[in-house]
């Protein structure tokens, strides 16, 4: 099954990349604030039960994909 893991910096963690992009958007005259940049990880995970597949993806987050000091993730089975 197709799985999408979205990794975001936790609220309160400085996101200099987001800040830089926000500054760039302001440069074009866009009114925008709180720009935060994250990461999308798409993958194929064997299995047919969405709950089971989601549990596997959660284990992957805990082992490698997410650093809980600074990041949080949401998992979507597509």
């Amino acid at each position: 099954m197709k799985v999408r893991v979205s990794v975001q910096l936790k609220p309160g963690i400085l996101d200099p990349q987001g800040k830089a992009v926000e500054g760039g958007l302001h440069g074009f005259g866009f009114e925008v604030e709180h720009v935060r940049i994250g990461r999308l990880i798409d993958m194929d995970v064997p299995g047919t039960d969405p709950e089971e597949v989601k549990a596997k993806a959660l284990a992957m987050c805990e082992k490698l994909l997410v650093n809980p000091v600074m990041e949080k993730a949401s998992i979507e089975v597509l």
């Binding site: 963690i13 400085l14 200099p16 990349q17 800040k19 830089a20 650093n67 000091v69 600074m70």
Partner: peptide, 17 residues
């Protein structure tokens, strides 16, 4: 060492970028 959980914490991008 932080990623290996031998030490606590994480090193983020410098504040100045």
């Amino acid at each position: 060492l932080c990623e290996a959980h031998l030490l606590p914490g994480a090193l983020l991008r410098n504040e100045s970028l």
